[in-house]
Structure formats: structure tokens, C-alpha cells
Amino acid sequence: MMSSLFSRGQVLLTKSFQPRRINSIRTMVIAKKYVIGKYFQGEPKRSDLPLVEEELPPLKDGEYLIQAEYLSVDPYMRPYVYRVPLGRTMIGSQVAKIIESKNANFPVGQRVFANIGWRTHTVIREDAGGVFDQPPYVLPDFDGLPASLGLGVLGMPGNTSYFGFLEICQPKAGETLVVSGAAGAVGSHVGQIGKILGLNVIGIAGSDAKCKWLKEELGFDHAINYKTQNVATALREAAPNKVDCYFDNVGGDISGIVLNQMNVFGRISVCGSISSYNADINAMPKTAIIQPALVFAQLKMEGFIVMRWKNRWMEGIEQNLKWIKEGKLKYRETVTDGFENMFDAFVGLLQGENTGKAVVKV
């Protein structure tokens, strides 16, 4: 446990799943996995993702067997699930330990990051890419930090923050940055990068506790509780000279407000739109018209998927690790215990129950 920077979520007492061996010599492992039984309609339902068992065959040359230690739940899973055929394993990434190997590049005992979904055990080929076509990789040395950070600040969310903010917003010292979904894994990270680079940073979050964390622990200059404050009024007070950069995690009316308070040649990096993920897509959109703001302020608005920078992946991890070691970048994790509680952790994330990165410890 990492001092005050490591926050544990509600612990549910469940027994860790262990592989069931067939005969005295290991020939097969019985793994557990969640499969996509039905595409989500509105808020995800437990019956949409049934938990099943799967027999894994003995290893072939070049393969290795991993056992999940930490699994990630992320907002992108909600819209991305429609890209995966029904009956397949629910998408997601994990940090796992290699427990058997016939691949010299992946020796027993090493930890790997693998984008292979919600499953306890997996036989992997070296070129397996998952939904993002990203082959598994051995985790770099985190110098004593938790391995779970490979799913957060030192993994995909960290690189989403690093590349998505720096490459698209092109921030400059003295500018004003607004981050929506600011208390999540990506938003909290982006705001801290803004402070490292000398920007005035305003976060928008959904509770007083989250706003307090952003200001008192992470160093945000201002934090707005969108549930209790008038966002337009609060934003004018916090940014009297308007906004130069907006990192958008939520979309919807909040984003319409921010866009209408931006300076000429402002830049918007669109990471996600969690406000709409459970909405009826046939009834959308129902938000303010943004084109006048884009035209008259000559704004640049660009969406992105972090895999755009997969050829620079370790650059982001190394820089974020350096900032952590220098005390410039803090993180928090909301941890749910038990593979059987993956679904609860996922729904809780979509409802904003997490602070920082949401992970499940197997």
C-alpha cells in the first residue's frame, strides 16, 4: 500500500480463484472469463456478461501461460464492446504473472501487460494483440512501485494523458487548461501535467470530496463541482481570461459550456464522452450546438485513440515514472477485491464511484 496516495475501494470478501488441475501432472487449467452475452442497452446488466469456465490446453512452443493479478475497468469498454462479436471475452487489459512458459522472451516469474480481456488465466502467443492490436509486453522496472500501476499512471491511461494532452493541445506555460472528468485516472493525470508545465488548471468533477482532492493534493488551481455549482458561472470566475486548452472526458452540456468560453485558437482534445455512454444512441444528440463557438473562436477540436502513439509507448511510461520519482505526479487507485466483482467495479466506474484509477485485484 502506497501511503496516502493509494486508496483502497470497498473490499468484498471473496476467495481468490486458483486454477483447477487435471490429473497430477498439469495438462490443462480451468480458467474463468466473462463473455459478452448481450450488448448493453442503457446501464450494463449483470446478465449481459455471464461468467463461464474454459479449459486451457497444454502449451505449444512459443506460448506462455499467465495468471491475472490486476484487471482494469475503463470507460472506453462501454462503447468499444460493440466492436467485439457476441460470445467473445469481455474486452480489457490486465497485469499478470507468467506461471509457465515455452517462450524464452517471456520467462516464468515475469509480469506482463496484456490486452486480453476479463479472464483469470490465458495461454498467449507472443504476437497476440487483443482488441487494440497491442501485443503483450513485459512490464518495465517500476522501482518498487505497485505492479497495478501498469494499468494506470504507468500504462494506457497514463499514456492517454501524456500523448493526448501534449500532442493535441500543444500547451504553453501561462495558458489556462480545463479538464472534465478531472478526478478520474486520465483527468487527474492531465491536470497534473498542466501544472508541471506551468498552466492555470481548472478541474470539473462530481463531488466536493473529489474537488478537494484535486486542489489540496494534486495542486489544481480551481475545481468545480458540476452537481452543485453553475458550471458556466463558476468557470467565468475561475477563468476570467477564458480557456486555452480543454481536455474533454465527458462530452455533453458541460463541454458545450467550456467551448463557449474559450479563447481564439483554443485547442480541444477529445478523449471520451462518458456522459453519453449509457444513453440511447437513437435519441442523440441532445446538447448545445457547438459549431458557432468552433467557428468564431477558430478552435481546433480533435478526437484521438491512444494507440496512435503505440510506437512511442515506452516514452510515455518512462516520462510518467520520472515525474512520479521527482514527486511531481501523484496517483490514486480505487481497488476492488475479487475477480467475481469485476462487473460491480465496472458499473461503479460508469457511475463515477471511483477516484483515480479503478482496478480489480484477483
Results as ranks from 00 to 15, higher is better:
71 L>S: 13
3 S>C: 00
89 T>I: 13
241 N>R: 11
40 F>Y: 03
46 R>T: 14
70 Y>F: 15
60 K>M: 13
132 F>E: 00
41 Q>F: 01
126 E>Q: 13
337 D>N: 13
183 A>N: 09
115 N>F: 10
58 P>C: 05
278 N>W: 02
294 L>S: 08
201 V>E: 01
84 V>H: 00
270 V>R: 01
87 G>I: 10
181 G>I: 08
255 S>C: 09
119 R>C: 04
91 I>N: 00
298 Q>H: 10
52 V>G: 01
188 S>H: 05
159 N>C: 14
199 L>W: 09
260 N>G: 15
125 R>M: 03
349 L>M: 15
301 M>V: 15
251 G>Y: 09
200 N>Y: 05
313 W>T: 01
354 N>S: 13
38 K>P: 02
362 V>K: 09
9 G>S: 06
122 T>G: 02
99 I>G: 11
11 V>W: 03
5 L>C: 05
53 E>F: 15
255 S>I: 05
318 E>L: 03
16 S>Q: 14
319 Q>D: 15
261 Q>P: 03
291 Q>P: 00
266 G>M: 02
300 K>E: 03
161 S>P: 07
328 K>C: 07
246 Y>L: 07
307 M>T: 14
279 A>H: 12
122 T>S: 11
293 A>V: 05
44 P>S: 12
77 M>A: 06
273 S>V: 01
283 A>L: 13
156 M>I: 15
26 R>L: 14
147 A>K: 09
307 M>Y: 13
